[in-house]
């Protein structure tokens, strides 16, 4: 399945179809992750890979719209068509050869299962006191890593903003659209269904956020889900309506506050006499401290991720509107 969709992405020339296929590919791989007993990862991949990423690509496509022009066959020399295949085959063969030294899948004796992982699985119940080991590793044991990841996301967003300009620039027009879906706003069915769906999506995001200690979920997934719900709203009811609910300024603040909540938790634990991001000192006893710390840190992650995803999407779609405005003026 995965291979078929991936191969489709290679051979199809219409970019729109390729992007749709990529969404399907991500959804299938999310199912695959679930099968490999990684529900947290599956949740993230489903929300990102099948939701946000294709949308961003579509928005880019709308900005740069054209088909991949099929290169005339004669023009393609052996150099351009055969060489990549040769390189790819050789690399692939070398990698396959290397797999013969790998431990078999699901082999309990594999090296990955015998270093820190058993420690996490056995001790986290007593030390952190929450059932979802993924959350405790993410937010507590490897809190520094995650702080780094949040900063990467934040920085990427700053990069996007500096490349495409500030959010408010493109908010003059109402609807995110390809030219041929301009009458999306008149679709009653879409309006009714989305009005029923969006609140549920948002509530589910909050559930994932705050129940992440006990079931699959956490700040990253919740942030993306929340953003996805909001993006749906912006797509159907227009960017202007979305901006009325969250202004660009609010998004900027939310991004910074998310990162600061995370970093600030570390500083707070420093002030209370612990190490940076050592949550043991944040409560009446160690386990309570861990609970509080993880809750706050995950909230920071959630706010930051949601704000970044929303503002990236708004930026791309705002620019789309802008772009078509310009073109129309030129036509007149």
């Amino acid at each position: 399945m995965l291979l078929v969709t991936a191969l489709g992405a290679v051979f199809i020339r219409d970019l729109f179809a390729v992007i749709m296929l990529f969404g399907i590919y991500s959804l299938v791989s999310a199912g695959f992750f679930l099968d490999l007993s990684a529900p947290d990862v599956a949740l993230t991949e489903a929300a990102i890979g099948a939701g946000v990423a294709p949308l961003l690509m579509l928005a880019t496509l709308a900005l740069t719209r054209e088909k991949t022009t099929p290169q005339p066959r004669a023009k393609r020399s052996i150099h351009t068509s055969l060489l990549p295949i040769l390189v790819v085959t050789m690399t692939g063969a070398a990698l396959v050869y290397a797999t013969f030294d790998m431990p078999f899948i699901a082999d309990p004796a594999g090296p990955a299962h015998n270093h820190v992982a058993p420690r996490y699985l056995q001790a986290s119940g007593a030390e952190i006191g929450i059932p979802n080991v993924v959350t405790s590793v993410l937010a507590s044991y490897r809190g520094f890593d995650t702080l780094g990841e949040v900063f990467v996301i934040f920085t990427a967003e700053i990069g996007v903003l500096s490349l495409l300009g500030f959010l408010a620039d493109g908010s003059g027009r109402q609807y995110w659209q390809f030219e041929d879906t301009a009458n999306l706003r008149r679709h009653n069915i879409l309006h009714v269904v989305s009005k029923a769906l969006i609140p549920v999506i948002l509530i589910y995001a909050f559930y994932v956020q705050f129940h992440g200690d006990y079931s699959p979920g956490g700040g990253f997934q919740a942030g993306v889900l929340f953003a996805a719900g909001f993006i749906l709203y912006a797509m159907i009811f227009g960017l202007q309506a979305a901006y009325r609910v969250v202004s660009p300024t609010a998004l900027y603040w939310a991004m910074a506050i998310g990162v600061l909540l995370y970093g600030g938790t570390g500083v707070a634990s420093l002030l209370l006499g612990g190490n940076y991001l050592d949550y043991n000192v944040l409560g009446s006893d160690a386990v309570h401290g861990q609970h509080n710390g993880i809750l706050i840190v995950e909230l920071g992650v959630g706010i930051c991720v949601a704000a970044v995803m929303m503002s990236v999407f708004f930026k791309f779609s705002g620019r789309t509107a802008h772009f078509y405005d310009d073109r129309r003026e030129v036509r007149k």
Binding site: L36, S37, A38, D40, V41, T44, E45, I48, G49, V52, A53, L56, M57, A59, T60, L63, T64, A112, H113, V116, A117, Y120, L121, V133, V134, V137, L138, R142, D145, T146, E149, V152, I153, A156, E157, G159, V160, L163, L164, G218, F220, Q221, G223, V224, V305, V308, M309, V312, K315, F316, R319
Partner: peptide
């Protein structure tokens, strides 16, 4: 299952989409 790869990948997915967005804005 081993939780550690899950943590690494779950964050990597979100970071991945953020960097993809950066790449796409370069394309624009």
């Amino acid at each position: 299952a081993n939780p550690l790869p899950h943590v690494l990948i779950l964050t990597a997915i979100v970071v991945g989409v953020a960097t993809t967005a950066l790449g796409l804005s370069l394309i624009v």
